[in-house]
Amino acid sequence: MEGMSTIVKKVSQLVAGIIFMYGIYIILHGHLTPGGGFAGGAIIAGAFILLILAFGSSALNLKKEVAGSSNTESVAILMVVILAIMSLLMGIKVFFTNFLPKGEPGTLLSAGVIPLYNIFIGIEVAGAILTIFLALVIFKEESSK
């Protein structure tokens, strides 16, 4: 898969950073505004997919990329489970308890562990969608050889 023209490359370079920041905003404000881990993770994966489509797969080392994204999503889903097990050890001993202090509702640092779950679920969703896309790209590259 080869890249597109210079105009497309430049515009996607400019836009991808803004989309990435918007995804991080959606994830971090998941407990205050609409959105959350799933929506923000999909937006972050969209930013990466935009760059890959504009620059073509020849611009990056596909094996390294797919190893990185699958490792990232594995670590993120492991962190979600570790956070859930941590609530077995602290506070009331129930799986998935909100063991951190709740704080004042409406501020950014509130709602206990919910923002942490949002962050790791967001990383997991972004890594999973990017891994599926990269697997399709690698399949096309290897079958066209």
């Binding site: 998941g30 407990h31 709740k102 709602a111």
Partner: peptide, 8 residues
């Protein structure tokens, strides 16, 4: 839950 967004 301490979360304003009910869905989350």
């Amino acid at each position: 839950t301490g979360s304003i967004n009910l869905v989350t």
